[in-house]
Amino acid sequence: MKKTAIIYCLMFLIPGIGIGNPEAIEPVFEQPILLTSAGQNAEVQLVSVLAKRAGLTFTLSKLATAAELADKKTLVLSIGASMKGLGAAGLDVKQEKTRITDLVKAAQDKKIPIFCLHLGGEARRGQLTDELITLLIPLSQAVIVVNSGNQDGIFTRLCEEYNIPLVGVNRVVDALKPIKDAFK
């Protein structure tokens, strides 16, 4: 109930966000960007290269905290849990979930919109990733997914339920244009 209330508040507070064409993302996001992964996945580097090629101004911080949102206008999350990545970062699942929850809460408090990407495809799905998807997609203002990661329709279902623009791409490189288009 509380979560739903926050989402509705955000939809009204951030103009142009929340209801959109499912085939495209309107240019509603602003720069500079704070980029981090939710789940310490390797795909955050893919997002980083895509953002660079899109000419966006961003900071990549794998362990981003609320303090790093200070001068930022968009929070970009690369969703996907990697046990290898968590181990390398010295985090357990609970610590990572706490970090992300705190970060998202801080973004909401500052009215900073959240842009989620899942670029790992089918291989980057699983129980923990699904928990992150279920937690984060309803709080986001736009989503890009590599289609093989959405074969069961989880992203489609959540985005329809919460009226969030969703773009599906077949290949990682295809995400470049919708990312570019999503920023003012």
């Binding site: 390797a42 795909e43 580097q45 893919l46 990697s82 790992g120 291989a123 290949r171 990682v172 490189v173």
Partner: peptide, 29 residues
């Protein structure tokens, strides 16, 4: 493809986007 994606960060940081083990800077699909 999965291994290439898993090790993308290493390949990118060591060899850059021009690494011969990346496909124009991205992992092979």
């Amino acid at each position: 493809s999965k291994i290439n994606k898993d090790e993308y960060e290493k390949l990118l940081l060591i060899g850059g986007e021009a690494s011969c083990y990346l496909n124009d800077g991205f992992p092979y699909e």
